[in-house]
Design a protein around this nucleic acid. Structure first.
Length: 296
DNA sequence: CACTTGACCTGTCCGC
DNA sequence: TGCGGACAGGTCAAGT
């Protein structure tokens, strides 16, 4: 589910809610969702207070006063929803202030995998329909050494991510389709299916174009488009296709601005050609067949 | 080694 | 209405 803009939206939300709260209890409903030893969580999680919330690629890092961090990957359908004290009925409801925007009802529900309860009475629900997501308690100093972080590429919204750096990293994968390269987290961090399709459309590049066939001009266009699309989406609170919600249970609105993603059969906003859906790198892929041609 | 495909899960939608 | 199959925003392991 969540790509960089969705995870960043959650990070921003959590960073206003969690720091200073202390953990009272953790309930793990699905062991694979939080596979740590109870003795470790008991020692380094229970009683800890939240120091800060960070993001790297699509991974959230909740830093604790015990020098451990909760490392969370939401994968396809993960949600982190924060709620204040319970109602008198013992359940919590969302959307009171955002009825048209809410996607979450009473919690916990059948997709709730982990519940973190704070001493304030507030709760953080880790919901995950497909159970692909996970959270883990790791010493903060060891976080950079986990396999994913050892190989993950640069953050696309950092000023150091220049088009030349993008080109250099792409060039290690000459023969791959550019879409597969965009989805490869070791080339650039945080891009998933939505923003791959949107940035390729904006840059007028066919997703099956081999990386080695891209001109410098094309790489520059894609670099510019990728950053613009990610920034716009963060400003819109991310994209909700089916499951994504922010920490208050609200949907993101970026897809209203999407030009091709999930718009097969509609007209290309740029040239009017009908948008088609195809399969590239094993993923559903949306393109304008007129704007995005292979020869570049 | 570079690249592609299947597996991990649950739920929904679509065609018959 | 029921049933099978395809598909869904991500990443690994195993395959070619």
């Amino acid at each position: 589910m969540p790509e960089l803009p969705e995870v960043e939206t959650i990070r921003i939300g959590l960073s206003t809610l969690l720091p200073g709260l202390a953990v009272r209890a953790v309930d793990v409903g699905n062991a694979k969702s939080f596979p740590n030893e109870p003795s470790v969580t008991g020692t380094y999680l229970i009683g800890a207070y939240i120091v800060g919330v960070r993001r790297r690629a699509k991974v959230l890092l909740i830093e604790l006063s015990t020098a451990y961090s909760l490392v969370i990957h939401l994968k396809m359908t993960g949600q982190l929803v924060f709620v204040g004290p319970r109602t008198d009925k013992g359940e919590v409801r969302f959307g009171a202030g955002h009825p048209s925007n809410s996607l979450v009802g009473a919690l916990p529900d059948r997709s709730t995998r982990v519940v973190v309860t704070f001493t304030s009475g507030a709760k953080l629900f880790f919901n995950d329909q497909r159970k692909f997501g996970w959270m883990r308690l790791i010493p903060t100093s060891e976080v950079p050494t986990i396999d994913f972080f050892k190989t993950v590429g640069p953050e696309p919204l950092e000023p150091t991510f220049t088009w030349q750096l993008f080109r250099e990293r792409l060039w290690r994968r000459q023969k791959r389709a550019i879409k597969a390269a965009l989805l490869d987290q070791t080339i650039v961090a945080g891009v998933g299916n939505i923003y791959a399709d949107e940035s390729l459309w904006a840059a007028k590049i066919h997703p099956e174009t081999r990386v080695g066939e891209l001109s410098d001009a094309a790489v520059r266009r894609l670099h510019t488009a990728l950053i613009a699309v990610l920034q716009l989406s963060i400003s819109m609170g991310g994209s909700t296709d089916r499951n994504y919600v922010d920490v208050h249970g609200r949907k993101g609105s970026y897809l209203q601005f999407a030009n091709v993603f999930r718009r097969e059969g509609q007209d290309c906003p740029r040239c009017g050609t009908r948008i088609i859906k195809m399969r590239v790198a094993g993923r559903g892929t949306h393109i304008c067949p007129t704007c995005q041609r292979k020869a570049r």
